[in-house]
Amino acid sequence: MTHNTPLSPRPLRHLSEVHRRVLSAAQLRSHGVTTAELNERCRDGGPWRLLLPNVVLLHSGGPTSEERLHGALLYASRESTPGVPAQPRAGDPHRSPYPEAMITGLAALALYGFAAAPPLASADRVDVLVPRLRRLRSAGYVRVRRTAELPTAQAVSGVPVAPVRRALADAVARLTDADTVRLLLTEAVREGHCEPAALVRELNQARLLSRSHVVDAVESLVAEGRAAAEDRLYRLVGEHRLPDPVWNVDLRLPGGPYLGGVDAYWPEQAVAMELDTRAPHRDEDERWAEYTRKREHLERLGITVVHVTPRRLRESAEQQAAVVRTALMAAGDRDPAAYVVVLPR
């Protein structure tokens, strides 16, 4: 019997090609294969082989990368254990054939196309993400990762994959090479997979910011993310024909205290713009309180502060330009702002 031979009493025509080559023991039983028949076909030299516990490869050759991925998901899936078999349903594209399981870590990053991730063919491990309360152990080439709240999977090449931020955190948790960590994080930001602050927040939640090589990579990541956001801010001013501000300056009262730095300032209209590229830290509440105090102090002096994030600059530049233009136009209707000294940063 080959892997394409229909199994009685239910044929396999409704399954995709890879699902015909990799099936669980429960699924095989539902197709009429007895335990004795299964053991006979998976014996040494037999036509099938046991890929993982209760997961069978329906040919005797080595598994392909696709078969390894689907085997890992079948093993980790809630319905791959004895009970109701996990099978995709025709006409129901939103139902995952692998409930409560998704690929994460380096294998997920490879599926997303990360150049810094090793190719799937060379991966000796495949990480799968499952709910924390699942009773499931790592086995064979499958490494189980757990989470209190399972994120919404992304379908990549027909495979349910953890969101990039989570996949990166799971990958970084296993990596000790600083260069690899830095390359992965940098690629995630450069290719637009996620914002630096959101990525660092995920690493912080995974308790990875206590590792020195991760902290070093994050510092480079935040610096690069800020540089990219500043470049978008320069383009926003030029492309939307806003008046030229003075860039990257410190504000101070004459003979008085330091008020803080801003990314752009229009002295005649007393309008400041500040990029929020803060990365989460353990003292995040204190840092946010300090930022709020600075903003409130400037506004008490009559200076309008426009707060913008890198994501807004990238996704809604026209809207952000309109916010700045409105603030500049409204300057004539406000009371004159206090005089401040503007110094290069």
Rank of each mutant, 00 (worst) to 15 (best):
R232C: 11
T35P: 02
L74I: 06
L184D: 03
A206T: 00
D92F: 14
E268P: 04
A178E: 04
Q320S: 12
G261R: 15
P243R: 09
Y234I: 14
S77K: 01
L253C: 10
T35Q: 06
R295T: 02
R43W: 02
Y112F: 12
V18L: 08
V246L: 11
G261W: 11
V237H: 15
P88F: 11
T5I: 04
L12T: 14
A110G: 05
R95Y: 01
T147F: 02
A123D: 01
S24V: 06
L120S: 05
T64Q: 08
R211W: 00
A198K: 10
N39H: 08
V308L: 14
V33F: 08
L73N: 02
A337E: 00
P336T: 03
P9S: 02
S16I: 02
R241S: 15
I103Q: 02
G225C: 08
Q205K: 09
L74S: 05
Q205P: 01
P88G: 08
R132F: 10
P47M: 07
V342N: 06
V249M: 12
P151G: 12
E268L: 12
V323G: 04
Y339F: 13
E195F: 03
D216C: 07
E230M: 14
R43P: 03
V84L: 12
W247K: 15
T309N: 05
P85T: 13
P63A: 09
R312Y: 13
H19L: 12
E274Y: 00
T34E: 08
P63Y: 07
Y141L: 13
V323P: 07
R20T: 10
D283S: 11
D335I: 00
A116G: 02
L58S: 05
L12A: 03
R43A: 10
A327V: 11
V262W: 00
L7N: 03
A173H: 05
R211E: 00
L58E: 02
H297I: 14
A115E: 08
V214I: 03
A272S: 14
R312C: 07
L58H: 01
G105A: 06
A227H: 15
R295V: 06
H70D: 00
R145K: 14
L57Y: 07
P151L: 13
V164Q: 03
R43V: 10
L183E: 04
E37W: 05
E202G: 01
L175S: 04
S80A: 06
S24Q: 03
T292G: 11
A338K: 02
G45M: 07
P245K: 10
T104R: 05
T104N: 05
A107I: 13
R95V: 09
T34P: 08
V84R: 15
L7K: 04
R137W: 09
R89E: 00
G71T: 06
V159C: 06
P131K: 15
P99K: 14
D127S: 13
V156F: 00
D216S: 09
E315S: 09
